[in-house]
Amino acid sequence: MDLASKLEKLSLQLVQKQDYLYSVTVGFERLESLLLSFLNEFGYITLDSINCRDDLEDGFFTITYCLQTKDRDHVVMVQTKIQRENASLPTMHTIWPQAEIMEREMHEMFGVDFPGHPTLIDFALEYWDNMPPLRRDFDTLEYVNSMNPFREQRGDALDAKEEMKKKREAKKAAKLKAQQEAEAKAALEAKNNPSDEVKNEE
């Protein structure tokens, strides 16, 4: 592919992921210049989406810019990694107007800062004072439990595994008991009419 050779000159590797999907990984310091050359030199004029993935274990965010040419017949993902702590990205809203709103959303959901972005204000949340909610270390269930009570009628729910164990034990106990009883009965019977036993033995 043409793009692959162009990227090779920049010592970047184009990976084909699916039929219409390619990806290229770039260091954070070269991101802005690469995006500009994608727009101006390679003809990738549409910014389809910007998205952020939280790799908590490794301590960084993976940022993906999805770009399309004017033929719109394939997508190139430009990926980069930034530090989770005090994450900051260059704003693209001057180049792609739609980046303004995508970056606003990312700022709210991940806490990524965009220096020079004019409207880093609320997107979907209102009066939010907690950790940005889409970070992986934000525990939504814990937050919900601290804010909202659920209905109380369901307190009689049982743990099925416990019940199974209980029932199995009860069954075992019942079986044991039955066995013992049977044995006792047999012993009793044997005591009561030993003549039968004798007969059987014969």
């Binding site: 949340l125 919900v144 209905r151």
Partner: peptide
């Protein structure tokens, strides 16, 4: 609105 529905663990909806 009764008991959270399928968004019972969502951080932005009310449950009851």
């Amino acid at each position: 609105p009764i008991n959270g529905g399928m968004y019972w663990d969502s951080y932005n909806t009310i449950k009851k």
